[in-house]
Simulated assay, not measured.
Amino acid sequence: MTSANPADDDDTFKILLATDIHLGYLEKDAIRGEDTFNTFNEIMSYAKQHQVDFVLLGGDLFHENKPSRKSLHCCMETLRRYCMGDQPISFQILSDQAVNFGHSKFPWVNYQDENLNISIPVFSVHGNHDDPTGADGLCALDVLSVAGPILLQKGSTHIALYGIGSIPDERLYRMFVGNQVCMLRPREEEGSWFNMFVIHQNRSKHGATNYIPEQFLDDFLDLVVWGHEHECRIEPERNEQQLFYVTQPGSSVVTSLSPGEAVPKHVGLLRVLHYVISVR
């Protein structure tokens, strides 16, 4: 871990980290109705300004499972403004996209679709507010697969990106205890991958099993991006037992009157170069 930013080059991943944007929260309020939309616009503007390789969201992009037409329109408008363009995508996906995106009718990353012109891809897990429901298990955004990582390469830097959408904490706790959560690793050159995990669960203990202890997560991970918790703890914290780092971006807007919501809000700009990472 280093606090110095390595020079941006053909081997450096630049990733914008954000979570819990809650688009549509208080959208009918006369004073705060535009807050979430303005904040999302600012986040994506920051991503474009810094020419990131992709945006990584930690869940709860929307405040409601069935967002209003205004929320959907504002989201799509912002994504079109900042994600569409001629800037080439400078990294490759090495994993089988038919597996990673098998839930979709278009099982490949959209920036490889000849009918679209994407310059900043967005990857996300779903949160507890925008989780899939109904017979078809549909939600307002696509989700990362927990079955295996999305394998990314930029120059000589390799990232294995894992994600798990929100699951009731007690259920996921029991699954970890019962060894029912298995994270697959690349078979070739295991030591050459920077392993990132995106999770949207309680990090703070709210009861005996109403949270996910960090020690449940695999120790081969290098960085955990923790969503759902609204307090901003963006500075990576080292877990001395598992020997990985945890960054908790926190919510992008205030949604409750609590001490955790009172601290300044931030998003993160992550740089990954081989084994050197920095978050600011």
Rank of each mutant, 00 (worst) to 15 (best):
Q180N: 14
Q248L: 08
R81G: 02
F40G: 00
G207Q: 11
Y162H: 15
L223S: 00
L223H: 03
A208F: 09
D113K: 01
V254W: 02
C74Y: 13
L138S: 14
R171A: 13
V279H: 02
E261P: 06
L79S: 04
P107Q: 09
Y82D: 03
P213W: 10
H200T: 08
P149K: 02
V224W: 08
G134V: 03
G102Y: 13
G227P: 05
L138F: 11
I167C: 10
D9T: 00
A4H: 12
C232T: 15
S256L: 02
N65C: 11
I31E: 09
V254R: 14
A262Y: 13
V272R: 01
L17E: 05
A135V: 12
L172N: 03
H103G: 08
N239C: 10
Q242F: 01
G59E: 08
A208S: 12
P236L: 06
V177T: 11
L141H: 12
A135P: 03
I212G: 06
W108I: 11
D218Y: 12
F62I: 04
I15W: 04
G165P: 09
Q248S: 15
L243I: 03
S278W: 04
S251N: 10
M76S: 14
S3N: 13
V181S: 02
R280H: 12
N100G: 10
M183G: 01
H50G: 04
S145K: 07
C182T: 15
K205Y: 06
V125A: 00
K154H: 04
L152H: 01
R174Q: 13
W193I: 03
P67E: 01
P121A: 03
R238V: 13
